[in-house]
Simulated assay, not measured.
Amino acid sequence: MAISGVAILEPYCEDDMRLLRKISNSIFRRFNEPLAKADYDDFYSIANETLWKAYNAYNPDMGVSFDGFLRSCLEKKFKSELTRRHRQKRIIDRFAVSLDAVDGDGDDCCLLDFIPSDFDTFEEAVKETDGGGHRDKVRRYIARLSNQQIAILNLLVDGYKPNEIQRMLEMSPKGYAENLYTMRSYENVKILF
């Protein structure tokens, strides 16, 4: 005998939607990626909404049980939601810009040249420490740099801008960025502390 009317929903709604959660959890386990705990509430809400829509769309003449129909509806809805979330991530990633990327204005500057930082290698290099120990640290730091990096350091301390330094030292923006990266690397900077 087929269950009719609202009685078809009763097993899913009893005991704080226990059966609906159980079915949803079995679908979640088959996903290629685990859900974060915060996502479960979102997906349970989707499951509740899908249960009601499945009930309204279900026809016993379809030749499939309501359980099977509901499960297929839930799987489709959950996959659609995951696809939508991944699409949003991809859209956001398209607008991401590397801090080292050279701008297209012809100045051969990158975002790192304009973003203020809490840490300044050169400020740390000249900071006063107890007993004048900073001079030894600065000497050891400078000893680790190449001649070109020392030239860059001197010009930066004198207040020249990156595009001016590149022009004066006849270097490409990429070469300048690589040298600056090496100068600011933890391996070199850790000497200053």
Rank of each mutant, 00 (worst) to 15 (best):
G133D: 15
G133S: 10
D61M: 09
D158E: 14
L19K: 03
F95E: 15
I8Y: 10
T83K: 14
A7I: 01
F69T: 03
Y44D: 05
N179E: 04
E75M: 09
V126E: 14
A101H: 06
Y55I: 03
V102T: 02
N154S: 15
H134D: 08
L153W: 06
G175V: 04
R140K: 15
T129E: 14
R30F: 12
E164W: 13
Y55E: 04
D105T: 02
Y12A: 00
P116W: 06
G132E: 08
A7E: 04
P116L: 10
A101I: 00
V157E: 14
E123M: 07
D113N: 14
P11G: 01
L192D: 15
D103M: 01
G68K: 10
F78C: 04
E33W: 02
D130M: 07
I8S: 08
D113P: 09
F66Q: 06
D67A: 06
L74R: 03
I23C: 05
D15W: 01
D16K: 05
A7F: 04
E49V: 05
N48V: 04
D108V: 02
K79A: 02
A125I: 05
K190F: 12
Y44S: 03
D107V: 00
K77E: 10
K76C: 06
K37W: 06
K174E: 14
E178I: 09
R167V: 02
E164S: 09
A38L: 12
K174Y: 05
V138N: 10
R71H: 05
D103G: 04
R84D: 04
F28T: 03
D107Y: 04
